[in-house]
Every structure is written in C-alpha cells, then in structure tokens.
C-alpha cells in the first residue's frame, strides 16, 4: 500500500508540470466538484420544486433562468453535477477494479485462462458499444446504478489490457523472481510490486474513463434512457430539446445552453488533464 501511496504522491507532484491549459482544466474540475459537494448550500432555490415563473431568462433571483416548470436552472445544474461525477467516477472505479482483476488473473495465471480472456477482450473491442449500451439500458431499466453497471461493462477492457501487459513484463524481472524464491505469495507480490507499478497508468486511464462515462451517460439520458428522477445534465438537455417550440423561441439560450456548457467544460477538462498526464507518465506517446 505504501508503494501505491508514494506513486500517487509522485503523480500529484507532476501536476505542477502542467501547461496553462492543463491547470485551467484542473481548476474547472475542482470547481465542479465543489459545486457538486455543496450543491444544497450554493443553490438558492430547490432543484425539484418550482420557484418562479416558467421560462424566465437569466436575471435577478434566478442567475441562469428557469425551465418550463419554473424550476431554477442553477440549482438543477449544481445537483446535476453530482450525478455526472458519481456516474463518471463510479464507472471508472468499477472498470478499473474489474478490469484490473481480470488483467491480474490473465497475466498471472497464463495458459488457457489467459487465452479465453484475451479472446473475450477481442470480442469486446469489435462490438459497437453504444448500440449495445442502449439495448442493455432499455432492458435493465433506468436508474443511476444500472447506468454505472452498463457503462462499466464497456470500460474494463483497457484497464485489463494495461494490467496484463505490465504483469507479463514484471513477471520476468529478477526482483520478482527473487521475491518469489523467498516465498512471497501472489497477494504480497500484488500489493508490494504489481500495484505500485501499474498505478500511474491506471490512474491516467481512470480519468479518461471518467470523461467517457460522463459523455455516455449524457448520451443515454439524451435518448431518454437516463434515470428520470436524477435530473442529470443530459436529462435537462433531453427535456429542453423535447419542449415543443424550443427551436422557435429564445428559451434555448439558457435552458439548453448552460447544461450544454457544463457538459462540454467537464468533458474537455477531463480530456486535457488525462492528455497532460499521459504525456508525463508515458512520454513516448
């Protein structure tokens, strides 16, 4: 565990090497995170109950305006940030955990187990993921947990491949061989040697997966497959675009634009951060 902690610290220290764009991205993610944590305190109105006239443009009292039911948009955005972050990080965590486990099993066991897992990964890669996500989400029914499970089912492949490759490489190293001859068990090797080695790559990949999961959740919600009780950003966009007459009025200039902006900002920031980290962790790319 100490080794993993040390590599995390090293990774955090590397953030100082970020370009200006990377630093701005980091700041945006931090702000969104804080908005999500303090959502009930910084939103002036309820995010569920009407608090003014419908379709009010941004102005006094309602900084970002209201939707067709008169619900404050700023409050909806703050609470929506929670859903996006939970889905994003939840998926990334689950995918890293599951994928990491699969990768460890494949790399460590080898033989036919490895072959079967690699074939499975090959199949996962060629399958078009979004249509399959729609099918699964349609059958499982809309809820935040189901969405996370469905998204994680399509995100474990990359972590599994990284971990497997790293383990195959490490297994041949003399210090691992030495540890093994001293009687180190699989569990010990995992915590002491394998995990710290794969951690930086996994962490970078998790950030990327977080972004992808947020996008996919927004896409599914936009199609009407999101959790109808959750009010995620994608769902606000779904409501706005299915409002009759949205194209012929000015309402989209706040009702659609702000959730759009929030999603674009969070996705771009996560992408830039992972790009910067990739450059630092793996300079070859």
């Amino acid at each position: 565990m100490a080794g993993t902690y040390a590599s995390l610290q090293k990774l955090l220290k590397k953030c100082r090497e970020f370009s200006l764009l990377g630093k701005i991205s980091l700041l945006i993610i931090l702000l969104i995170f804080l908005a999500a944590v303090w959502a009930p305190y910084i939103s002036l109105h309820s995010h569920k109950i009407s608090s003014g006239p419908a379709l009010l443009p941004p102005g006094k009292g309602h900084p970002l305006g209201t939707d067709d039911l008169g619900i404050d948009l700023w409050a909806q955005l703050c609470h929506g940030a929670r859903i996006s972050l939970i889905v994003g990080f939840g998926t990334a965590f689950l995918a890293a955990l599951g994928g990491g486990l699969v990768g460890i099993i494949a790399g460590y066991a080898g033989g036919w187990v490895d072959k079967v897992i690699m074939r499975l990964i090959d199949i996962m890669i060629v399958l078009p993921d979004f249509p399959l996500m729609i099918v699964l989400a349609a059958f499982l029914g809309p809820s935040v947990l189901n969405i996370i499970i469905v998204l994680a089912l399509f995100s474990w492949v990359f972590p599994a491949r990284i971990v497997r490759a790293q383990i195959l490489m490490l297994k041949e190293h003399s210090f691992i061989k030495a540890a093994e001859t001293y009687g180190a068990g699989a569990w010990y090797l995992l915590w002491k040697h394998f995990l710290p080695a794969v951690f930086p790559l996994m962490a970078v990949n998790m950030i990327r997966q977080t972004g992808r999961a947020i996008v996919s959740e927004a896409g599914l919600s936009f199609l009407g497959l999101g959790d109808p009780t959750s009010k995620s950003w994608g769902l606000i966009i779904n409501h706005a675009t299915s409002f009759r007459g949205i194209y012929f009025t000015e309402f989209w200039k706040w009702w659609l634009l702000y959730p759009w902006l929030a999603l674009t900002l969070i996705v771009l920031s996560l992408a830039f951060i992972s790009r910067e980290l990739e450059r630092i962790v793996n300079p070859r790319l």
Binding site: A218, G219, W252, L256, W260, T264, V267, L268
Partner: peptide, 22 residues
Amino acid sequence: FIVLAEIPVFLLGLIILFVFAA
C-alpha cells in the same frame, strides 16, 4: 483538432443545430 476530437458528438450537433438551423 485536439479540442474537436474531444467534444462529444451530440453536444457538437446540438450547438450546430441551434446556431445554424434554429
């Protein structure tokens, strides 16, 4: 292109729809 490659396709579609069509 790095920026363009990262913007999700339906968000890009929405803004283009509302600016150029609506």
